[in-house]
């Protein structure tokens, strides 16, 4: 277990390093921030001064070395636009995205698993078919459109839910969270639903497939032959076997949801990281883009690690030690 963890951390370092190179080069290819950031009226001397201040006069490899040196000390550079450390900027926006993504993933579990179970147990029933057809919509409708429709229905027509912003927040450990206040929850309801719709469909289909696959197994028949109640058979014997693929997918989806909440955050004006990254790309705020992508890489690595560890809890046949 320990050697395994060590190996994984070592691999993770390599992945991060490789990412810094790709991201750094990529960001420098897409455009020159000087054209956007410096006002056209500025004279040549002013221009040169600002470029030197941002470190853009040096060759790329020097800029990269400087960035890497800073990164080792936890400094990913200062935003050109806000003149604040990029990390601080992202950190300030992260709670909003995190609570939105986590809520969305929780929602996809709470809706996806029961619906999938039902559809799997009653594959020929009308409700089971309706659920499955509905999940196709969940997969295929573009999320920005669904977001707009939600706003149209619940905010504009019915007036039940607010359509923009985080609402009231409460503070814990110096961080502001929306999910702690009723108003915040009301603000979160629509964006979270919007974000979770795809995942609900995914989890639902996965659960249903798992149920269909597990039910004809001998061990389920044997469990029934022991005289167990149907509830025990379904919720212990079937569900525990299904949780393995579901946990994998949910883990990966949590990463994806955090990283690509961009669309939903834009539609609902949710002040999270996604909104920040879109704004930063528009003005070519390089340090923020780089810092954001680094953060996402780290989140993915962490989630994968947690999923791998969860495996061993769920499936006793999986051992983390690699064969020597």
């Amino acid at each position: 277990m320990f050697t395994w963890l060590l190996r994984r951390l070592f691999q993770a370092c390599f992945v991060v390093l490789a990412m810094t190179i790709i991201v750094f080069i990529g960001v420098h290819v897409i455009g020159n921030p000087v054209d956007i950031l410096i006002s056209p009226e500025a004279d040549q001397a002013e221009r040169a001064k600002i470029i030197a201040e941002m470190g853009l006069d040096r060759p790329l490899w020097q800029q990269y070395a400087y960035f890497l040196g800073g990164a080792l000390h936890g400094d990913l550079g200062r935003s050109f636009v806000f003149n604040e450390p990029a990390l601080k900027l992202i950190g300030g926006r992260m709670p909003a995205t995190l609570e939105l993504a986590v809520t969305a993933v929780l929602m996809s579990m709470c809706f996806g698993i029961p619906l999938g179970l039902y559809a799997g147990l009653k594959p020929n029933g009308i409700l089971g078919r309706v659920i499955m057809s509905g999940s196709i919509l969940g997969f295929s409708l573009p999320s920005f459109w669904v977001g707009l429709m939600l706003i149209m229905t619940f905010a504009v027509q019915l007036g039940w839910l607010p359509s923009t912003g985080r609402g009231e927040t409460a503070e814990i450990l110096g961080v502001r969270w929306s999910f702690l206040t009723w108003d915040g929850l009301r603000h979160m309801a629509m964006p979270a639903l919007n974000l979770s719709l795809y995942n609900i469909s995914l989890v639902l289909r996965l659960t249903r497939a798992g149920v269909r696959e597990t039910l004809p197994m001998d061990y389920i028949k044997f469990a029934r032959a022991k005289g167990l109640s149907p509830a025990r058979v379904i919720f212990v014997h079937v569900l525990k076997n299904i949780m393995i693929p579901v946990v994998t997918v949910l883990g990966l989806e949590l990463g994806t949801t955090i990283a690509f909440a961009v669309v939903t955050e834009s539609v609902f004006a949710w002040p999270g990281m996604g909104k920040l990254i879109i704004d930063s790309i528009n003005v070519l705020d390089r340090p923020v883009i780089v810092a954001y992508l680094m953060m996402i890489v780290l989140i993915f690595i962490t989630i994968n690690l947690v999923v791998d560890i969860l495996y061993t809890v769920l499936d006793p046949r999986v051992r983390l030690e690699t064969k020597a």
């Binding site: 061990y219 389920i220 044997f222 469990a223 032959a225 022991k226 005289g227 109640s229 006793p316």
Partner: peptide
Amino acid sequence: MRHLRGNRIAMIFQDPMMTLNPVLR
């Protein structure tokens, strides 16, 4: 029937590799 099953009437299956749930102790 469930009260009889596994209690008064029991069954053993053909393939022992498949009759026990792999994820439960």
